[in-house]
Design a binder for these strands. Structure first.
Length: 222
DNA sequence: GGCCAGGACACCA
DNA sequence: TGGTGTCATGGC
């Protein structure tokens, strides 16, 4: 079976199992960008609490974050953890927006994928995954988000690039999945859902995701 | 009380 | 280039 066919089978299986239609579809571009930073190494629940605090205090605006005292910003986003680091990253992000075309988020997101990626990665605290979250979900450009769930799940299926750097993973996916924004968004969301549901106790169960019922008796054992 | 969650970075060998 | 420690909160 080719990698392309296998990836399509995984996608089809997951699409039948999970509904991710509400995954970052109703949020504003700024909510997505800020959310992508806040969710780093934490759960979406915690990131959401922090995001809500920014919204309810009227601070989820580029200019508001820019002029907000760093200590207050840290306090607002504290529930998401790593609040000192993330506050600095948010400050760096809004500075980047200010320096972009028109000084607006729309201007920044209008850059082509490569330039947008380079710009985002220039901000301390924004790495590959966060940059791709922003490119895919906020800028609506086809750049696959290779998180640790994707890597772990694909590896279980024998799908692995030679040399497992982030960009090699991404190239592997780009070469074998239709480069479509909605499909990339859906596939990534489905992989996260599967990763969150996975059975952690039976590591030898490798291929059950393509079956409607896991051979171990545990649904979605990964 | 320990482990883990939708990372990123600095440092070191 | 790859491994490791650090940043930190909250749920289970």
């Amino acid at each position: 079976m080719t990698t392309r066919v296998l990836l399509q089978q995984i996608f089809n299986y997951l699409k039948n199992e999970y509904d991710v239609s509400d995954w970052w579809r109703n949020e504003s571009a700024l909510e997505i960008c800020v959310g992508a930073i806040l969710v780093q190494n934490t759960t979406w629940r915690q990131a959401h609490v922090a995001l809500k605090q920014l919204i309810t205090t009227g601070n989820l605006e580029i200019n508001e974050i820019k002029k907000l005292d760093i200590l207050i910003l840290q306090k607002l986003i504290k529930p998401s953890g790593f609040y000192r680091t993330k506050a600095n990253t948010l400050k760096g992000f809004v500075d980047l927006v200010s320096q972009s075309k028109d000084g607006t988020l729309k201007g920044l997101l209008s850059l082509d994928s490569e330039n947008l990626r380079v710009s985002l990665l220039s901000v301390k605290g924004i790495g590959n995954e966060t940059a791709d979250d922003i490119i895919l979900y906020a800028a609506h450009k086809p750049s696959f988000v290779v998180d640790k769930y994707s890597q772990r799940i694909f590896t279980r299926y024998g799908i692995q690039p030679t040399g497992s750097t982030y960009l090699k993973w991404q190239t592997l996916i780009h070469d074998n999945v239709d480069k479509d924004v909605l499909k990339f968004q859906e596939f990534h969301a489905l992989l996260v859902r599967l990763g969150q549901d996975r059975c952690k106790t039976i590591p030898e169960c490798v291929d059950c995701c393509l079956k409607s019922v896991c051979k171990t008796g545990l649904k979605n054992c990964m």
